[in-house]
């Protein structure tokens, strides 16, 4: 049951202090030299103002770019193997856009659909998501085409929506959200007759995700993918900034005495992703890799897990060196 309250800017500052006192680390969008990253903050004033999106995604908080999975020492005839424990602390992710927040659901499907990934889970357990509704959108955004929206509550424990009077509308959505409220209940006040919808960015859907998913199996051999991917340079920028892309590599780093195994981000767009040691590559052309990206997100994943592996944040489009606009390409596929 969602509780709807409001909080003033001054009270929000007090809430930050209460969060800090409770031993929680606060990560929020911070801006340096025009670049918006997830950084540690103590006060709302340190949070980037009027930004649209983080450049990278908040998945870093639960699925870091490099993570140790195990370490070992090697001796003649003997190996001493050590489990790795993720370095974690209670964390509040403050000011995540609703698209980003909803991305954690896809990640959970990947990391826990069968066996459970303790590294991901340990971080998620310690994490509370304070979402922030969008009052603006740009040409890359398409959350409303994939089932989200500028004020979507999915994935947030608590969602803030800026009100015209400088207050924030507060939706308390989960038990973790209630814990935050319980830290300083006096900071919250009742919200009466606030029209959340009116405050949100307006974003018309561009395509129907379910129709796309239904259509894709029939388009597998279409020339469309080669056509679209002609511009693609085959880097991993889109996957690395994506809140839902979870493909990873496992790398060994060792000397003659000891070593560690690291998990790091990987991308199906990179040529060596599927390259066998023999030289055989099941997806040797960029067109096949581009198609895999689209199909994994909008065909295979929905068939398996019931939802698209995309939140419509548009980060991939903004990060792409050659403007491979995902919304545009999906819209084109729908119309093919």
């Amino acid at each position: 049951m969602t509780t709807i309250l409001k909080i003033s800017a001054e009270s929000l500052e007090a809430l930050f202090a209460a969060l800090g006192d409770s031993g929680r680390r606060i990560l929020g969008p911070t801006e340096t030299d025009g670049r918006v990253d997830l950084g540690e903050v103590q006060t709302p004033a340190q949070v980037a103002d009027a930004h649209l999106q983080l450049t990278l995604s908040a998945k870093e908080a639960v699925f870091p770019r490099v993570e140790r999975l195990l370490s070992y020492k090697t001796m003649p005839g003997k190996v001493e193997l050590n489990d790795a424990e993720p370095d974690i602390q209670p964390t509040v992710l403050f000011g995540l856009r609703p698209c980003e927040a909803s991305g954690f659901g896809s990640l959970d499907s990947v990391f826990n659909w069968d066996s459970r990934d303790k590294f991901f889970n340990a971080r998620v357990e310690q994490m509370t998501v304070v979402g922030l509704s969008c009052t603006q959108a740009d040409d890359a955004c398409f959350c409303t085409s994939v089932g989200g929206g500028p004020g979507s509550t999915k994935g947030s424990d608590l969602l803030l929506t800026p009100l015209a009077d400088g207050h924030y509308l507060v939706e308390i959505l989960t038990a973790k959200g209630e814990e935050i409220q319980a830290l300083a209940p006096h900071l919250f006040q009742p919200a009466v007759n606030e029209d959340k919808e009116a405050l949100l960015a307006k974003l018309e859907p561009h395509f129907d995700r379910e129709a796309l998913t239904a259509k894709l199996p029939g388009l597998f051999t279409s020339e469309l993918w080669a056509e679209q991917s002609l511009r693609c340079v085959g880097c991993g920028a889109c996957a690395f900034v994506c809140p839902t892309c979870a493909c990873f590599d496992i790398q060994e780093e060792a000397d003659t005495k000891e070593g560690q195994r690291l998990r790091c981000w990987d991308s199906c767009g990179l040529r060596q992703f599927t390259l066998h040691a023999s030289g055989h590559n099941p997806r040797s052309a960029q067109a096949e890799r581009w198609r895999q990206r689209i199909y994994h997100k909008f065909s295979y994943f929905p068939q398996r897990f019931g939802e698209a592996m995309c939140v419509g944040c548009g980060k991939c489009t903004r990060a792409c060196p050659v403007d491979m606009n995902l919304k545009e390409h999906l819209t084109q596929a729908c119309g093919t």
Binding site: V110, D117, F248, D266, F273, L275, Y295
Partner: peptide
């Protein structure tokens, strides 16, 4: 089949082929 694999748990995405 012997696709390239890393995790063995259906997570790393490398061996994903169709569904």
């Amino acid at each position: 089949l012997e696709n390239r694999m890393k995790c063995g748990h259906g997570k790393c995405g490398r061996c994903n082929t169709g569904t």
